[in-house]
Nucleic acid binder design. Structure first.
Length: 897
RNA sequence: GGGCGUGUAGCUCAGUUGGCUAGAGCAUCUCGUUUACACCGAGAGGGUCCGCGGUUCGAGUCCGUGCACGCCCACCA
């Protein structure tokens, strides 16, 4: 070897820990990454050079779930890839800490209820309620105290999430943290409202709305879900005014009988045709109500004729509106039957042909909740005195149990009711077509998720109800003028000015008024409602970009590149975010939606607290390590639900250990610095190059799982099990003192260079998924050698890594070497000798073409298998590329030292 | 009731545009251990690719149909 040849810088393996210690490595690098701002967004970079992520702000009041780790890690893998591609990655974290879920958690945690009538108590600090306290009535606290409790608890909850994110190594830029209850989010949500108001996109209306009687608030169509519940048909006999006819209706809600305002059947139903235009008489309350035909009545269902109430369901609302029926509201906002009076002329809304009897009956159900009222009215219906036709009891047939879908607020426990209330709405029905067009412009991953959005949008039937009668949230920036009688003028609300934002109408004064005029006739009154929490979170891209607060920044961050999210909230979060971007700026909010799948329990059932099959993430991440956990998450493709399998964590752990050991071996090889020149090395590099190209294509399509799988397979089968073993003897020649000639030096140097290139490229390909082990191995040599202190800012492998290296003479060289290597290993296994055992001699057989083609790499094979003497034998019967090792004789087992 | 997805080895999953003599890991069995790694290595066994029908020279892959499971949605009589 010539004297001027440089020797590669190698690590001393004794300086490296015997085993990989994840806890130490995680702590060390988390600190360093934060110090060095490894993941910081650079606001000066151009839009084209940036990659913008609209991170889902987790609902902090929800419990930590293994699904969080799963989906957020998947996004992080994409973020890390883009960063290595040289993109300036904007990767923020927001906390969704306003809205009903927060309130519900506060109510449960402290066992309190908000009561706006209770006076404020300064310095109120509560502990989590004890089991004993929970048995008693909830403590009433003022609105202000309640909101303060929300603040305190969400901060605790946010810390738990933050800890988890750091435990799994999310490469979030923590300087870009936001809260949906924070000032910026408030300002922008209120600005959104102002903009929509100016554009005529929001309006207020008194109308029947879906109402949760426990939370006592309106809810939107998107937050409603059906639950299959047992119910029962009750068959009630109705009379007909001015005759002795009767008919029987079937109802599942007999308690709404006093609210009956009409009766309907299908127009072509011969049984009831003759009744249209006449009045029916209700049992118990003797209310005369019109009988009208409707296409919506199904002759097959129940008895084919049914009662219309204010309001039993959405169809009742339609009939009530279309037929101009009376309003007889019996159900109050708290879900109890309100006091009402029946009289002969209906002057108070409740007409009855026999008011005394009607009132007597009603008194028995008044004040009861829906379920109790139902039980009570069933008893009353057995009383012949309540009959509208004669002396038979009006409940005329056995109660028939059924299972039927009932609407619930998705966070609620009691069925929803339709109550007439005043609400704010955003007009979405008239932009359906534009919404659908925007959906086409967005790339959905996987593509079938687009159908979820399209179906929901096409079937939208109500405008978006954006007001909530709650406390923790962003205030609707509106006041109402009061007339001389002190009545609110809802037609002419006073909307806040941009300069006032963020504004709280309950303490701030509307423009042109004086605080002394609050709640005075001729003065003003505050809107006390808050926004639906989605009204704020649908602005997450704009909250990140600062929107109107910083137009220059907004231009660089909006629209975002990707929105990662779960599929069950396509109809809410994705849908509303698209709506906002459309209505405000006629834009799409992001170019790609990445829809993650779910983690199912091992029996492929959805995990839920009630089933007790949830997995708590923190102990799991601690038991395995961050990289293994990330390996598990990144193994699942987008949109695919995965059964939870702890075995996958173990495989990840094994991979991490292997990377550690392979890295230690490769980087401790000392030898001449030389280019990759030997045929086997060139063939190995050629396959590595192909792997990298494929991985880049996959990653550009967000197919991180494919990249991981292919890289892992390559690492194991092409690198550690084969190439590393085949190149090992040659790489060691220098240390073994067998590198005297120039050719030997070049061959040794070639092996070391190719091993290092293999490790270097594979580390970078693993880096997005396994940030800790790759950073650790990177830090031993590459960080200094390449002048890049962190692998997470190193360039993603590209053609540039391979440009200097000549293509192999024969592209099949690598596979041929492996085939020969495998044949000799199999021979050793068949003879039950160790892989390391020396072979005195053997005969390697293959067909003539194969043998000839493998010529240039066989020396490495014989060296790796420790064959001292060998003979090649042409056997034309063997297929191309197949080797067999025959007639071996093995050296004696060396004595144990 | 409508829409979408899934169904491949005992388990968890890959299988691009139809070329498969169907793969990987785990688990099982056999063998092997001084020098990167027992958190290891070599080898073996294991499958009517959910059923049925069709298109094709050829189907795990495309079409039709049925079944099972899951999810989303739907007008509570």
């Amino acid at each position: 070897m010539s004297a001027d040849r440089k020797v590669v810088r190698a690590v001393d393996p004794s300086q490296i820990a015997k085993h990989f210690d994840p806890a130490d490595v995680q702590a060390r690098f988390n600190e360093r990454w934060e110090e060095e701002g490894t993941y910081a967004y650079d606001p000066s970079a151009s839009r084209e050079d940036s990659f913008v992520i609209d991170t889902p702000p987790p609902t902090v009041s929800g419990s930590l779930h293994i699904g969080h780790v799963f989906s957020y890690t998947q996004t992080d893998v994409v973020a890390r890839y883009q960063r290595m591609r040289g993109k300036n990655v904007y990767y923020p974290m927001g906390w969704d800490d306003n809205g009903l879920p927060t309130e519900r958690r506060v109510q449960n945690y402290y066992h309190v209820r908000c009561d706006p009538g209770t006076p404020y108590e300064g310095g109120l600090a509560l502990e989590a309620a004890t089991a004993k306290q929970r048995k008693g009535p909830a403590r009433l606290v003022s609105r202000k105290n309640f909101i303060e409790l929300c603040e305190v608890l969400t901060e605790i909850d946010e810390q738990a999430f933050l800890d988890l994110w750091q435990k799994v190594g999310l490469s979030v830029d923590w300087t870009q943290e936001y809260r949906t209850i924070g000032d910026r989010a408030r300002t922008l949500a209120q600005h959104s409202f102002l903009d929509l108001w100016r554009k005529g996109r929001v309006y207020t209306q008194f109308a029947p709305t879906m109402w949760d009687v426990d939370f006592q608030t309106a809810v939107a169509q998107a937050e409603v879900q059906d639950r299959e519940l047992p119910g029962a048909y009750h068959h009630l006999e109705f009379g007909v005014e001015g005759g002795d006819e009767s008919f029987v209706i079937a109802t599942t809600r007999p308690e709404l009988l006093p609210a009956c305002v009409g009766v309907t059947a299908h127009p072509e139903d011969e049984r009831y045709e003759h009744l249209f235009g006449r009045n029916a008489v209700t049992p118990l309350f003797f209310a005369p109500v019109p009988i009208f035909p409707s296409e919506l009545a199904d002759p097959e269902k129940g008895s084919g004729i049914l009662m219309v109430c204010t309001f039993g369901d959405a169809t009742d609302v339609l009939w009530w509106r279309d037929e101009g029926l009376a309003m007889r509201q019996v159900l109050g906002r708290a879900g109890r039957l309100m006091p009402v009076r029946f009289d002969a002329d209906g002057s108070e809304g409740f007409q009855s042909l026999q008011p005394d009897k009607a009132n007597a009956f009603y008194e028995q159900i008044q004040g009861k909740r829906v379920k109790q009222a139902q039980a009570a009215i069933v008893e009353l219906l057995a009383d012949p005195a309540g009959s509208a036709t004669g002396s038979r009891p009006p409940l005329c047939r056995e109660i028939e149990p059924i299972q039927h879908p009932v609407k619930f607020y998705e966070q609620g426990d009691t069925p929803l009711e339709y109550l007439p209330t005043r609400q704010w709405f955003a007009r979405l029905l008239d932009v359906k077509d534009e919404m659908l067009a925007k959906g086409e412009e967005i790339q959905w991953h996987p593509p079938f998720m687009h159908a979820r959005y399209r179906d929901w949008t096409e079937n939208l039937s109500l405008d978006w109800s954006i007001s909530r009668q709650r406390y923790s949230g962003v205030a609707i920036p509106v006041w109402y003028p009061l007339d001389a009688e002190g009545e609110r003028d809802y037609e002419n609300p006073i909307v806040a000015t941009e300069e006032q934002l963020p504004v709280d109408p309950t303490s701030d004064t509307p423009p042109g008024y004086d605080e002394s005029q609050r709640n005075q006739p001729g003065g003003f009154a505050a809107e006390t409602d808050i926004f639906d929490t989605w009204f704020t979170s649908s602005l997450s891209p704009q909250i990140g970009s600062h929107w109107v607060l910083d137009p220059e920044r907004h231009a660089k961050l909006f629209p975002a590149d990707v929105r990662p999210q779960a599929h069950e909230i396509i109809r809410t979060w994705a849908f509303y975010t698209i709506a906002k971007a459309l209505l405000h700026e006629n834009q799409i909010p992001w170019k790609h939606v990445l829809v993650s799948g779910w983690v199912l329990d091992p029996d492929r059932k959805k995990m839920s607290k009630s089933k007790g099959n949830t997995v708590t993430p923190v102990p799991l991440v601690e038991k395995h390590n961050a990289d293994s956990t990330r390996y598990w998450a990144a193994s699942a493709r987008l949109g695919v639900d995965t059964a939870f399998d702890e075995g996958v964590f173990k495989i990840g752990k094994r991979l991490v250990t292997k990377i550690f050991n392979a890295g230690k071996f490769v980087l401790s090889q000392q030898g001449p610095a030389a280019p990759v020149s030997s045929e086997l090395d060139r063939a190995f590099v050629a396959s590595l190059r192909e792997l990298a190209a494929q991985a880049t294509r996959d990653f550009d399509d967000f197919n991180y799982a494919h990249v991981l799988q292919n890289t892992e397979t390559f690492f194991w089968t092409h690198f550690t099990d084969t190439y590393l073993e085949l190149a090992k003897p040659r790489a060691r020649r220098f240390v073994d003192g067998e590198c005297d000639g120039e050719d030997e030096a070049l061959a040794c140097g070639s092996a070391i260079a190719a091993l290092r290139l293999g490790l270097d490229v594979l580390l970078r390909m693993f880096a997005p998924t396994l940030p800790y082990i790759t950073e650790e191995v990177w830090s031993w040599v590459f960080a200094e050698e390449k002048g890049q202190p962190t692998i997470h800012r190193a360039p993603w492998p590209s053609e540039a890594d391979f440009a200097e290296i000549p293509a192999p003479e024969n592209p099949a060289s690598f596979d041929l070497a492996v085939a020969a290597f495998t044949a000799i290993n199999k021979c050793k296994a068949d003879h039950e000798v160790s892989m390391g055992r020396e072979v005195e001699r053997l005969v390697l057989c293959a067909n003539p073409a194969t043998l000839a083609a493998a010529g240039p790499v066989l020396a490495d094979v014989f060296a790796a298998t420790r064959c001292r003497e060998h003979r090649l034998h042409e056997d034309a019967a063997l297929e191309d590329g197949v080797f067999e090792a025959r007639e071996p004789s093995f050296a004696p087992k060396p004595p144990k030292r």
